[in-house]
Design a protein around this nucleic acid. Structure first.
Lengths: 332, 332
DNA sequence: CTGAAAGCGCTTACAG
DNA sequence: CTGAAAGCGCTTACAG
């Protein structure tokens, strides 16, 4: 320690093991080509020196960063919580470092984060946010792999791993009709995926039931905090709904709590549907009827996509549909 | 694009602007030393080439990574959710890249993540997890800044930004006594911060009220999922409690829901106390009495600590107490 | 305020 | 299976 305060480098390990730096480098990056006896000497030298590779240097030399950026709108109360957790675990287990970016709802922050990822020469960006033309151009000019998750646009920038929000909205409508509901209230949004689901729900509902759902508009589907306002709006309706379709399980939970606090019985007097199958959905009283998205599968598919060079990618590999599954529980 | 598929580098910008690479480098890292006219030419060249700096090269040359690792046990339903969100936002706004590590409850994963952060030559590690001697040795051997947040150990490895869990536990006990509660039930843990709070609560309670709280033990304080089991345990008690002290607001919420589902009125028949002042605490029905920890402040203090070189750090700057604040709401 | 040049700590053809 | 050497794309004293 006292002889050299500087952290040990590859040279130090090589010297101690009596080999060249090239061999030590191979020991770390391509171990099966180094002779067992040599490997053993290197291992000992690494141990003795406390060597920790410098991945900035390694990445620069090899033009591979082993870094993946994950971009999400929020951390707390996020509908993506479970998926992100899986993703980070799977990436980390594969020896990949995760760069986390919180985009909020502003597009310019997304762009800044994408630039930051590019500055680090990230191998890929996994993003849950919407993309505009500026982002599309920025990404396509580079060689970074851009993976859009949780949605399935007609023309992904690069790769998309998700499901059809239109189909999900339609299926929720069919399910509620089959359960005998008559007057749905939709908690929807001005744009994005929630809007896509709501639009499809409305279309299907009109076609099947011949009526139009009432609506509340929120900016963020997942925020529990919208529950009070939305419930107040519902109570003011002249023709009150018999079921509320929410954009997330957290909001569904909030509405159940509000409804119960006002003396309503769920689902007897008011049905409530969530989205995402967060862990709370199965634990709430009543348990929440929702749509399950396989976050683990999305994470695994996204990681698998990283391994495929852009050139070798088939059209089917650019749009990976993981589907969804309606889970009928107690709340509707 | 067709002439050179490779991404532009500093040389390309320098050539186009008619200056040396050194000057372009200064333009990015120390802009006030370059002449306005020169800066303008460089700006134009950067624009024209679409240059994005390579931070692996920059970091290697400058021995500064501008990378900070943030280590947390979980993402979903985390008691640290709000603090982490603040932290990531503040770090990103300072131009620092955040490397996210999910440690779970296993010590070996924490160690692996610390090694990964060191491999990237992270400037600092901000961690919420417990540290053992192995981790302490690993960190102290390096020059990385290690910031323990959300706790205030007597001898921090490097820097701690947090509060006294003992004081918090004691104050909760005093508060409940002042409210007239007689039979508290403690949801505690085998180790860590929750145990520290529980121990202090028990000590204070015994001293003031002369009795001993009943207890349930959980592994993760924050999991909503523990609520059913804990509530079942409470119902089996021969001498049922009049208040339950939880390790998190999520668990408190879960218990309120369970209690209400069993027909108990909260707080009339059973008081419930949370911890952390998550956003749900103020939105739940009834609103949750809890302890507020200023996550933004922890984030800011941690970031400020990054700026202070180790040598210049006073003893007071090594243990930064952000305190806590008991918030009396409806649930107890 | 600016440039020439050395150096950061690795990886990887190439040759043996 | 291993080594010598060039190169990855930047930064930073040093000199002017």
């Amino acid at each position: 320690m006292s002889e050299a305060d500087l952290p040990p480098k590859l040279d130090d390990v090589a010297a101690k093991a009596g080999v060249s730096t090239a061999t030590v480098s191979r020991f770390f990056n391509n171990p099966n080509v180094v002779a067992p006896a040599t490997a053993e000497r290197i291992r000992t030298a690494v141990e003795a020196t406390g060597y920790i590779p410098n991945l900035m240097a390694g990445g620069l030399a090899s033009a591979k960063s082993r870094l993946v950026a994950v971009l999400i709108p929020h951390i707390a109360e996020s509908i993506f919580g479970d998926m992100i957790e899986r993703m980070v675990e799977e990436l980390t287990a594969s020896g990949i470092t995760v760069m986390l970016g919180v985009t909020g709802t502003q597009a310019h922050r997304t762009e800044e984060l994408i630039r930051a990822a590019m500055s680090r020469r990230a191998d890929a960006i996994i993003s849950t946010g919407p993309v505009d033309d500026k982002i599309r151009a920025l990404v396509q000019r580079s060689k970074i792999i851009f993976i859009q998750v949780w949605e399935l646009p007609a023309d992904p920038i690069d790769i998309a791993v998700g499901f059809s929000h239109r189909d999900a909205g339609r299926d929720i409508a069919r399910f509620l009709i089959s359960r005998g509901y008559r007057r749905p209230h939709l908690v929807t949004s001005d744009a994005g995926r929630l809007k896509a689901r709501s639009d499809a729900f409305r279309t299907e509902w009109s076609a099947q039931a011949g009526s139009t759902p009432t609506e509340s508009v929120v900016d963020m589907p997942s925020r529990y905090g919208h529950a009070r306002r939305v419930f107040a709006e519902i109570k003011r309706l002249s023709d009150p709904p018999d079921v509320v379709v929410c954009g997330s399980d957290h909001l569904a939970q909030g509405l159940i709590i509000e409804a119960q606090a006002s003396g309503f019985r769920v689902p007897d007097q008011l049905g409530i549907v969530g989205f995402g199958n967060a862990s709370i959905a199965g634990e709430m009283r009543p348990t929440i009827t929702t749509v399950d998205i396989d976050g683990s599968r999305i994470a695994r598919e996204a990681i698998a996509a990283l391994a495929r060079p852009r050139a070798e990618r088939s059209e089917a590999e650019r749009r990976i549909d993981v589907g969804f599954r309606l889970i009928a529980r107690e709340s509707a």
